[in-house]
């Protein structure tokens, strides 16, 4: 657990949107694996992680909708906003790639997500603390799994090792913005988790490099648009449709 208070007090509207959007977008990415997993167990596991994240996204976005008082619902937020209004991390909108890529992305995110939620569980806002405490229990399972996969592929065959190293390197520049603003002080704990895991995976830890930023400001990579087009199609084409 993180004992120290965060240096910057989070703006609750920004925070709930940022947490909900990252959960939602990653859930959508993982959902695309359904039916395509390398083995049945992996298919089930990815779908379950995607479901957890979707459930968490719903809680954050519902809370956001309630607090902003603009008469919007979680569904309005998910299906009727354009890319520029999303506040998810650039990391989670990156495409699935191969399995090493999906697992490296998941590991970087899970390691951050767990720390972030443990911190938010100490929030003096009761709703934020309750959602975070609940989500943290689930994310502990997610992290255990993605960590195992990074080690398994990194310390596997020459081919799986090569792919994991490639994925870890390619995604590294998207990890910097996770620690902007109020999550700044989580960086050392995250770095320690990543270094220990990559070492066990016999994968070289990427050196500090230039980092992409913009997710928190709504400046996204070109990867987000097509994802939203697919996710939002039904509500856009048939407004207010329900089943």
């Amino acid at each position: 657990m993180i004992a120290a208070a965060p240096p910057v007090k989070p703006d609750l509207l920004q925070l709930t949107l940022a947490m909900g959007d990252s959960d939602l977008i990653l859930s959508q990415r993982l959902g695309a694996w359904c039916g395509h997993g390398p083995v049945l167990e992996e298919d089930l596991a990815l779908a379950n992680v995607a479901l957890d994240l979707l459930g968490q996204a719903r809680m954050w976005l519902s809370l956001h909708a309630e607090r902003e008082g603009r008469n919007r619902t979680e569904d309005d937020l998910a299906f009727l906003r354009d890319a520029g209004a999303f506040r998810n991390l650039l990391l989670v909108e990156q495409p699935n790639g191969d399995y090493a890529f999906t697992m490296a992305r998941q590991f970087y995110f899970d390691a951050w997500h767990k720390l972030a939620l443990e911190q938010l569980a100490l929030s003096d806002d009761a709703s934020v603390a309750a959602i975070a405490a609940k989500a943290a229990k689930e994310v502990a399972y997610h992290l255990r799994r993605s960590r195992d996969w990074v080690v398994r592929l990194g310390d596997g065959t020459a081919e799986s090792h090569r792919r994991m190293q490639t994925a870890v390197d390619a995604l590294w520049p998207f990890t910097g913005e996770m620690f902007d603003e109020y999550f700044n002080h989580l960086r050392p704990a995250w770095q320690a988790e990543v270094e220990a895991t990559l070492q066990a995976a016999t994968v070289t830890v990427p050196r500090d490099a230039w980092m992409h930023r913009g997710g928190r400001q709504g400046i996204h990579t070109e990867k987000l648009g097509p994802l939203l087009a697919e996710m939002q199609f039904l509500q856009r084409a048939y407004p207010n449709s329900t089943w």
Partner: peptide, 13 residues
């Protein structure tokens, strides 16, 4: 353990 996630989120296989 065959899989950390089973047929539902609450179960492992």
């Amino acid at each position: 353990r065959l899989s950390q996630f089973g047929s539902t989120p609450c179960k492992a296989l």
